[in-house]
Simulated assay, not measured.
Amino acid sequence: MRKLAIFVIVIVELLSPIQLVKANIQPKLKTEDILFIQVNRLYGGTRVFKESDGYEEVIINKIVNWINTSSPSEGITKFDKTPIVAVMKLIMKNGDVAVIEPAYNCISENQVKTCTIADSEVIYTGNNKKVRLKSLELYDWLLAGWKYESYGAPKDELLEELLYTRYFSYLDETNSDFIMCPKIDKVERINGDTRRHIVHASALNYGAHHGDIPYDRIHISLTDIPEKGVKINKVTIQKAISEKESRIQCRREG
């Protein structure tokens, strides 16, 4: 009898409306499924971020992460006669389109309905369903943040890639796969000389970029001296780093 009671409780919990809502309300996206993102403001222009662009892919990845980690929020998801201050469209490679727009809080007094933008909340529409989500980062980026994204990689990032490419040619061929998300982690002058340096660099193995297995990371220590050239001092491989570490390496998380 006791087993039957437990079984009934489990079934009731699984089929309860609350559980069903929780199972369906949170969108889960993958960067590689998105073709491009387009943002439009009522006043303030428009911009497109393409997955095929290496730098803009990082921005799309950031947006996807905010969506996937946002919190469900209670409130209405359909509004009448509210201004479309800003709208973001996520165009998927399979032809589907998801839409993100600001959420509103509405009150009715004396048969007059007044709606104001809900701080930190957005409406996500996908697969013919509307979901209200809470995410300060996503809300701020939708209203204004996208306008301040750089066009192309920042100069310091390009300089790091340039230096790493120079030093990469000195590595053994067995490490030829470590070309993804290169970084110059630290540069030290040798005895204060501005021409002689000790350089610490790192990168991920390209072979893991599909996400099936964790990334490995290479750590390189070298000296760069004009009269002697580049000398690799030490190379270590850090196996199976965490997803968070790989995101930081690729400048996708602070």
Rank of each mutant, 00 (worst) to 15 (best):
D80N: 12
P72C: 03
A203I: 01
G75Y: 02
I37F: 04
Y206T: 08
F36W: 11
I184W: 04
D156V: 10
I237A: 05
N68T: 02
I91M: 12
F178A: 00
R132W: 03
K183M: 08
E157G: 05
M180R: 09
G192S: 08
K50T: 09
G95D: 04
R247V: 05
L29Q: 01
E157K: 12
E161D: 14
F79A: 02
I190D: 07
V58E: 13
L171Y: 05
M88K: 01
D216Q: 06
L136M: 13
R247S: 10
Y124Q: 01
I184S: 04
E56H: 03
D216H: 13
K62W: 10
E101Q: 15
E109N: 11
R195M: 14
V87L: 06
K244I: 15
A118D: 08
I190M: 08
G207V: 07
K113Q: 13
K244T: 15
I100T: 00
D177E: 13
L136E: 15
I6H: 10
T125P: 03
L133S: 01
I225W: 04
K89Y: 14
D185I: 05
E109W: 09
I100H: 00
D172E: 15
D140T: 07
Q249M: 13
V64H: 01
I84Y: 08
K89L: 11
L222K: 06
F79N: 00
V87M: 10
V39N: 02
M88H: 00
V39F: 05
D119M: 06
Y148S: 14
L14P: 04
P154G: 07
T46I: 06
A201P: 04
L142R: 01
T114P: 00
P102R: 00
Y215V: 02
V131F: 11
T116S: 13
L42D: 12
K239V: 08
Q249Y: 06
V48P: 06
H210S: 13
V235L: 13
K28E: 11
I91W: 10
D224F: 06
W146N: 02
C250D: 03
G45V: 03
E137P: 05
L204R: 00
D33T: 03
S242G: 09
E56K: 01
D53R: 01
P102D: 00
T82Q: 11
I11Q: 10
I6W: 12
R217T: 05
T114V: 13
D212P: 02
K113L: 12
I248C: 10
I25W: 05
L90P: 00
I37C: 03
F7L: 15
